[in-house]
Design a protein around this nucleic acid. Structure first.
Lengths: 216, 216
DNA sequence: TATAAGTAAGTGAGCACTCACTTATTATTA
DNA sequence: TAATAATAAGTGAGTGCTCACTTACTTATA
């Protein structure tokens, strides 16, 4: 199998780097193999073959196999917080979304699209999180914590508006994330397509019901 | 570190087998090492050391390393469906067809306890699911499908009663599972304790709001 | 005494990684 | 501009090490 037009967002990110064509092929091949078979069940020989490159070339740029993994995951992880934060802010500040439902629809749909575009990286990240407690800790406290703070700003706005239950932002964020994950997990595990507009519509229907402030 | 009183339920299951003491120690050690470091990052030498047993002993009973994994996961996976199905039935019949909220509380609390008791196996299973698409397929269609059918019986009852929204049982089950998973994942990843009564109370509060039939 | 359980030193295969070398690209100078 | 030097990119046959698994043997049990 030849590697071409696999992961659009990933390809875009690659063009911005100063890597040679062969090195980019190494990263693409690694992304595919790691996500399919796992980091530990992928040999550097396999990577070289899939990238149509010698094994020495693999090691010219990336000093270790872990280095390849880092080169794949770092840009992804680093982009999660900024892109999500930006999404919350635009959704809010545009003031286009006076209703909680509109805000949620926009954010849920956008985050689902982001996840689908990065589903290979997400799968590799999940594999690593299950192997490395430090990474799990980072995910919860640094990434998760930061996201809750950013999202919390928006949530508090809707709580003041009386549209959203008065639960802790952390708790509300958890429900939003886990509900969205419910749609993403099968798609990531089985590499199936996801009807994002339909899924986000359904998810938001449930979330709104579960999170709206009951008029008393 | 010595292996003792680690996993109560696992220990109980072990006593029912015809394995020798040393073989049981092999399984216990493997359970701990696999869940902590992952299957691929655990060597049979490490297992033997942790079990205070020679490497040959490991291979007397379990012909391959995969065999050890199967001996750990099979009893767990096989018990998921029956124990859940039994729980749905007892939750319904014991309290003589309780309110949806009472049913959900009972089921959610019970399943959370089951998950916590088997969290090491669950973590190993998750690792494997991310590596093996066939296993992911089995999880979704055989295990998941079966559970939805069993749970669906109860859900349909509550739909007829007018207590539960008229969404597809598959969809409702997904929301229940993902909401519960939201509480379980951090605890499984970081090996932290979970206040099950509190967590299930919170989860049900949200689920009831999101899933109750709106009186029209 | 026969069968099972346990041992520890192998064994060969596969792995991540290296190194001496070749080829391509860029910089420098006549 | 052409020739050459200097640097970088790429190659593939190693290399040593770890790993899953075996085997010849010893000890315990029925």
């Amino acid at each position: 199998m030849i590697i071409n037009s696999v992961n659009t967002l990933f390809d875009q990110a690659l063009t911005k780097t100063s890597l040679s064509e062969k090195q980019k092929k190494v990263l693409k091949a690694s992304l595919l193999l790691f996500s399919k078979n796992g980091f530990d069940r992928t040999s550097t020989k396999e990577i070289a073959e899939k990238a149509q490159v010698s094994e020495g070339t693999v090691y010219k740029q990336f000093k270790t196999k872990e280095g390849i993994l880092a080169a794949i995951l770092k840009p992804f992880v680093k982009s999660v917080i900024p892109s999500a934060a930006a999404e919350f802010i635009t959704a809010l500040s545009q003031a286009n979304y006076p209703l909680l439902e509109e805000f949620l629809t926009q954010v849920v749909q956008n985050r689902m699209e982001f996840a689908i575009e990065n589903k290979l990286q997400l799968k590799i990240f999940a594999q690593e999180v299950l192997h490395d407690k430090n990474l799990a800790y980072t995910l919860k406290h640094e990434i998760g914590g930061e996201l809750v703070v950013k999202m919390g700003l928006a949530l508090k706005y809707y709580q003041k508006q009386g549209q959203l239950v008065a639960w802790a932002p952390q708790r509300i964020a958890q429900y939003i994330i886990s509900t969205v994950m419910g749609y993403l997990v099968p798609c990531i595990l089985l590499d199936q397509p996801l009807d994002v507009p339909e899924a986000s519509k359904e998810a938001v229907e449930f979330l709104i019901k579960g999170l709206k402030k009951n008029s008393e």
